[in-house]
């Protein structure tokens, strides 16, 4: 009886300590996360103006949203462009990084060299540097598909696509992918790390059993690696989403930033929220499809 009481005492004591460890963060989250988050939702529905020593917020209803969606033609264009870019970048990054992760996780000569090479984007990764490179480049692989005159002079993947005579939608999709391939490969760094970490967490036992049963590498991948990675997939998807949306080159972000500079905070907030909600729903839908049709099948 006495022992049980004492045991509970330690548990409550530990709980208290644990809470104390997390307490500063809780305060920080409220001040620096929830308060601004709610404020930015309020800004969407109001006119914000900064005066000396005070912030004036006048409730305006849906004016900002209406203005952004129906009056501002630039915004709808940017929104379409940004979502289109997201729609082709997202699956490519997910799949490309998975393939690279699998390859880099195998044991082979020169693995250390290749790993060092592929983790380089994680270290040097900088939206600014990549953007500047794109601004200065003149004629090289980076410009395939963006500059017609350059493209015609080169034997490039784009000409191969033209030559194949694929339907316009497919070929324009591939064209986009190739023109962005450098950006896409450079966006894969952290994702590769996450996939590798996920694969390291799969117990070797499963593969040994599969080997005894005579499974091929292909079957091993589809029946062991892929289902076991479903949790990591969510993580990689979320990271990729946030990474893509917050990129410096993102059209909507760029426009919202300009509006912030002009002190139209309400309009900028409306732009960001509309964009983020659409992207969030899109990612959610993609993940749902994935879990429904891919991951669940094997369980």
């Amino acid at each position: 009886m006495k022992k049980a009481v004492k045991h509970r005492g330690i548990e409550t004591l530990k709980a208290k300590y644990g809470f104390r460890f997390a307490l500063p963060w809780c305060i920080g989250v409220v001040i620096f996360f929830f308060v601004p988050l709610i404020q930015s939702v309020i800004y969407v529905f109001s006119d914000v103006s900064l005066a000396a020593g005070s912030i004036e917020i006048n409730f305006e209803g849906l004016t900002n949203i209406k203005e952004v969606l129906f009056t501002d033609a630039n915004y709808t264009n940017n929104l379409g462009g940004a979502i289109g870019k997201f729609a082709y970048s997202f699956p490519v990054i997910m799949i490309l990084s998975l393939i690279l992760g699998i390859l880099l996780n195998q044991k082979f000569h020169g693995r250390i060299f290749y790993r060092a090479l592929y983790f380089l984007p994680v270290i040097v990764a900088s939206g600014v540097v990549m953007e500047l490179i794109f601004m200065t480049r003149s004629s090289d692989i980076a410009s395939i598909g963006t500059d017609a005159s350059v493209r015609d002079n080169m034997i490039s993947a784009a000409t191969v696509i033209d030559w194949l005579g694929l339907p316009v939608t497919v070929s324009s999709y591939l064209d986009n992918v190739i023109s962005q391939i450098m950006n896409l490969v450079w966006s894969c760094g952290v994702q590769i790390i996450l996939w590798i970490a996920g694969m390291q967490a799969i117990p070797d036992l499963l593969y040994e059993v599969a080997k005894v049963e005579g499974a091929t590498k292909w079957e091993e991948f589809w029946f062991i690696t892929f289902p076991m990675l479903s949790r990591v997939t969510v993580l990689v998807a979320v990271y990729t989403m946030v990474d893509l949306v917050t990129a410096k080159t993102d059209l909507v972000m760029e426009q919202a930033y300009q509006y912030t500079q002009q002190q139209s905070y309400g309009t900028a907030s409306a732009m960001l929220w509309i964009y983020f909600i659409i992207i969030g729903l899109l990612t959610g839908a993609l993940l749902l499809c994935f879990t429904r049709f891919c991951a669940k099948r094997w369980e």
Binding site: P36, Y43, L50, I55, M253
Partner: peptide
């Protein structure tokens, strides 16, 4: 993690000014 900094940065900036 999921909500990008960009969503909260505008109020954050205004709050920091005062």
């Amino acid at each position: 993690i999921v909500i990008p900094t960009q969503m909260i940065i505008i109020p954050q900036m205004i709050n920091f000014s005062q």
